[in-house]
Structure formats: structure tokens, C-alpha cells
Simulated scan of single mutants.
Amino acid sequence: MKNMTGLSIKTEQGQLYILDQTLLPHQQRWLHCQQVEQMVVMIQQLQVRGAPAIGIAASLLLAYRAGQGDSRAQLLCSAEVLRASRPTAVNLMNNLDAMVATLQQSDYVSAAVACAEQLFAEDVQLCLQMAEHGAALVQPGERLLTHCNTGGLATAGVGTALGVVRLAQQQGKGIKVWVDETRPLLQGGRLTAWECEQLGIPYQLICDNMAAMLMARGEVDRIFVGSDRIAANGDFANKVGTYNLAVLAHYHQIPFYVVAPHTTVDPSCSDGSQIPIEQRPAAEVRGVRGSFGQVYWAPEQAPVFNPAFDVTPAKLVTGWVLDSGVLDQVAVAAGALTRLTVS
């Protein structure tokens, strides 16, 4: 494999490295990933996260394993193991489908490597296209709000929703960003805030339950969020708490956009009720774990409901910002999402 570098994924001299996002923002440690079992743990523990990044990381690992001499049968089995690691993120399924298709070729090793490299390069380009379409919506001086992390840490490129914010800042629009902390794992507080600091984007960190107050005070002009899967009718799954924002935005008449590449659209999924929602470990809600150990603020056996994602109905979305352009309610109702070609 050739050398490729993203904010959270890189290949050097044929080896695959993953930035451990659980240690951010205070420590940057790259993990050398060589085995499928390692990648599954990294995905499930959110050391690598973000739908595009997960799909690319899994594809690069399969390519690496092919180069290490794994048989076609072994690689097909590995693809299925990786596919089960995060059920909501459709990019993972789409990328693995592309990789599995290469395994039917006689020289499947070269084909797998070329496919993984192409998926990485494609995501970089898709991010740039989404950023251009989304930034065109942003007006000078606007106060934007986002949820979870949708920047370079979640993709191979500049990101999805945060990529839009990044380009708007680079265009000199004088924006400010409200960053939801994103309970329970604080991807906004740990990751988006870190990216904003690295990029020089003015931001303020808020608890998730403060967004309504800001909207009521007229201090939010536009909302951009990402997605892990978009159904054919426009319903979409994203980090839990996104649905809350959509309802609040609808009530306060604030434009609400979902930003995602066409690889996140699942034409075979008719609506949001068909999107599988991953349940996360109860310990994430009962307390917090870090370099300091485990701290509980709830009874250690407290029953917990901890979905990783929620589903936002299409009727609450102002527009779908894709790499191909911005779709409105009329276009999506007419089936525009089902006509997208997933490569």
C-alpha cells in the first residue's frame, strides 16, 4: 500500500496506523493495527469512529491482510467479522462490499489494495465537495451549532458537517460554533473542540441540554450534523441527541442540515424504522472511564438504556448536504436519494 495520511488514519511503508481517539484531546497516540481482532476492538471501543473512517479503516486492514498472505476464504470471513462490529454505520457495509467484490478477481491481493486506496482517496474528495456545498449556505457572521464529531477525525478528509464549518471559516465568514459536548462519551467536548482549536475556529462548548436555551435567545442561526446512515426517504441515524436538536430547530424555525457523502445513503433502507440502532455498554452512562480509572456517579448496577444513535425523521430536515449538492424536501420526497449511485 502507498503512504496515505488522514487526521485519524494513516498508512506508512505498507503498515496501518490508527489514532486512538479515546485519548484525545490530551494525548495523541498512534496504534499499529495488524489483525482483524484488533480492528474490531478499536471500532467497538471508539478508538476509530465516524462512519466514513470506520469503513476506510476496515478496508485498509483487509488490504493489509491480503498482502500478508491471507487466503480468499480467510479474507471473506474477516470481512464478515468486521461487518458486524458496528451495525448502524452503512459506510462500513458499503466499503466492505466493494472489498469483497475485489476478492473474486484472480489477482485479488493487488485488487484489494487498489480498492482500499481508492476508497481513501474518494472520501477525501467527497469531503471537499460536501464542504463546498455546505459552506455556500453559511452567511457571514452566523452562529452555527453542531453535535458529536464530524471532522477529519471521522473521515479520511476534512470531515462532513465540521468540514462545512471549516471551509466557511477559511472563507472569512466570521462564524462562531456552538459545540455540543455529546453525552455520554463527549465526542463534542473531547474531539470537536480539539479540532476547532487546531483549525483556529472560534467555538464555545456547551452541555447538550443548553442548546434549547441558545435557540430561544436567537443565538443559533444554522445547524449542521453528520450521519451514520440515511434511509431512502431521508430519515437518518446519527449520534444520539441529534433528534433532540432537530425537534428544537423545527420549533424555533432554525435551518437544520445533515451533511454526509453518498456512501452514507442506504437506498435499500426504506425509512428510519429499518435502521439498526446499536446499544452501547451501560458503564458509559453510569460513570466515566479514563487514564484516572473508572468513576461512577450512579449506582454500579443501575439499569441503563444507552443507544449509540437516534433517528431523525426527514420532515424535520431542511436539507441534505451531499457531495453531489444540496437536496431539499421536495427532491428527497421525489426519490432523489434512491437514485444516488453507491460506489
Rank of each mutant, 00 (worst) to 15 (best):
S273N: 14
E132I: 09
S273W: 12
Q170H: 14
L340F: 13
Q44V: 09
G174V: 13
Q129T: 06
C148M: 05
D20S: 07
Y17D: 07
Y296P: 00
G157Q: 04
V179I: 13
D208G: 06
Q139S: 12
W320P: 01
R29T: 13
A156V: 05
Q274A: 13
L19M: 10
H32E: 10
I175D: 01
A101K: 14
V225M: 02
M4Q: 08
S268M: 14
S270K: 15
V179W: 00
A336P: 02
T312Y: 03
M1I: 08
H252R: 12
T5F: 14
A302E: 13
H147F: 07
E181A: 07
A314G: 05
E117D: 06
Q13T: 08
T155L: 08
R65K: 14
Q301T: 12
G55Y: 05
L153G: 00
E300Y: 13
I56R: 03
R229Y: 06
P25L: 08
A111V: 06
G241C: 02
A331K: 10
P276H: 12
R83S: 09
I56E: 00
L145W: 02
A135S: 15
S273C: 13
P299Y: 13
V158N: 03
P313C: 10
G151F: 00
V330C: 11
Q129A: 15
A282I: 10
W320R: 06
T22H: 10
E122D: 15
K10C: 04
D228F: 09
E117L: 05
N244P: 01
P202F: 11
N149W: 04
V165F: 02
Q21T: 05
L316K: 02
M39T: 09
S110T: 12
A135D: 04
S324N: 12
V164Q: 03
C77M: 12
A51M: 08
G172I: 09
H262W: 06
G335V: 07
S110G: 14
H250I: 03
Q34D: 11
A308R: 01
M213L: 15
E278I: 07
A101W: 09
H262F: 11
V225G: 01
R222Y: 09
I230L: 10
V285E: 04
T192K: 04
S85Y: 10
L191F: 05
Q105L: 14
R183T: 06
Y17S: 09
M39P: 05
W297S: 11
A212Q: 11
D235R: 14
G290P: 05
G174M: 14
T102I: 05
E142V: 11
D323L: 09
H32W: 14
G141I: 11
E117A: 03
I43D: 00
V332D: 02
A116E: 02
Y251P: 00
S291R: 14
Q198M: 14
S8C: 06
W194R: 05
P299A: 15
A136L: 12
V265S: 08
L75P: 02
V113H: 04
F309Y: 05
V113R: 08
V164C: 07
R183A: 08
A302S: 10
A53F: 00
G157P: 04
P303K: 15
E37H: 15
V285C: 11
D228Q: 11
A260R: 01
M215I: 10
G157S: 08
G226K: 03
L19C: 08
S270G: 01
T338R: 15
D70E: 11
S59G: 12
L92G: 00
